[in-house]
């Protein structure tokens, strides 16, 4: 019996169109839910506070003290560095924290509010739900990174002089190109967070307690970075999803060093594939009892 006969005829015809293959409607709905939460905006505001705090602190103390990334010192000379410095500061902890919250909450949060069963009965399709959840988490990664970058650029414009930007190769590029590179870096960092988002999605399918999934995801990101610091685990380093996180500096070289961009993308793709498959394995036939 085909599905058409199940759908019935007559009055249903006006209510049910042909199934939209891509399901953009649900994706948009997912984004709407994500970005209508106060929590999401609180996290983005906290991320925006990072460059603002850095800029204000440097403005008040009249210059950096040499700690942190070297080009932090250059903020006083060029406000466009605020965004980059803030990214370097936010990458190890703040960005993984927010991504962990969003990704860890993705399925477990729906389970805990009881909406998961209604979504599945709608029916949303389990694989489609996973894909949409991951896509929404990816959009959040981009939003978070752009928030840091844009807030940094804006506060830099407000507090510091702005001019042509010196790259770490020593070459100088125009403001327009530096903005383009900032955008590229935001994309790079976003890509770098996708692996963590996939891990969070997988963890989120393991439990009905969103807080646990969020915490576990954040812990995973911290553990990965600690392992990345230990020389004893050097063989493991290139396989850690955090391996390329701070290599966004390669986009500040002249010419741009694309190899880390490509390697980062490949690594994250592998993480997304592996943990996406794990999440599918876990979620495809999971008993939804919440």
């Amino acid at each position: 019996m085909s599905s058409e006969s199940v759908l019935g005829t007559g009055s249903n015809a006006t209510e049910r169109g042909p199934r939209r293959a891509l399901g953009w409607g649900f994706f948009l709905s997912e984004l709407a839910v994500l970005f209508r939460r106060r929590r999401t905006w609180a996290m983005l505001a906290a991320l925006a506070a990072v460059p603002i705090l850095i800029a204000v602190a440097i403005r008040l103390t009249d210059g950096g003290d040499g700690r942190g990334p070297a080009f932090l010192d250059r903020i006083t000379q060029n406000g466009l560095f605020v965004g980059l410095s803030a990214l370097a500061v936010a990458i190890p902890l703040f960005l993984p924290l927010t991504v962990g919250v969003v990704a860890g909450d993705s399925v477990a949060g729906e389970a805990s509010t009881g909406t998961l069963r209604y979504l599945l009965v709608s029916p949303v399709g389990r694989i489609r739900l996973l894909i949409v959840k991951f896509a929404a988490a990816a959009v959040f990664c981009l939003a978070a990174t752009l928030t840091v970058t844009v807030a940094g650029i804006l506060i830099g414009l407000a507090l510091f002089p702005v001019g042509p930007v010196a790259l770490i190769s020593g070459d100088t590029v125009s403001v327009a190109e530096s903005l383009l590179r900032s955008l590229l870096i935001a994309i790079y960092v976003t890509l770098g967070l996708l692996g963590l988002a996939a891990i969070g999605l997988f963890i989120s399918t393991l439990t009905d307690a969103p807080v646990g999934a969020m915490a576990a995801t954040v812990v995973v990101s911290i553990v990965a970075q600690v392992l990345g610091q230990l020389s004893q685990t050097e063989w493991l380093h290139p396989w850690l999803f955090s391996y390329y996180w701070l290599d966004f500096g390669d986009l500040l070289r002249q010419p741009i060093e694309w190899s880390s961009f490509g390697a980062n993308a490949l690594l994250q793709l592998a993480y997304v594939a592996v943990f996406g498959a794990l999440a599918y394995g876990r979620f495809a036939t999971k008993d939804v009892l919440s």
Partner: peptide
């Protein structure tokens, strides 16, 4: 058939 759902989870790391 429940074991089949783990096929991708096994296959993907293998492919990687």
């Amino acid at each position: 058939r429940s074991w089949q759902r783990w096929i991708p989870a096994v296959a993907v790391p293998a492919v990687v």
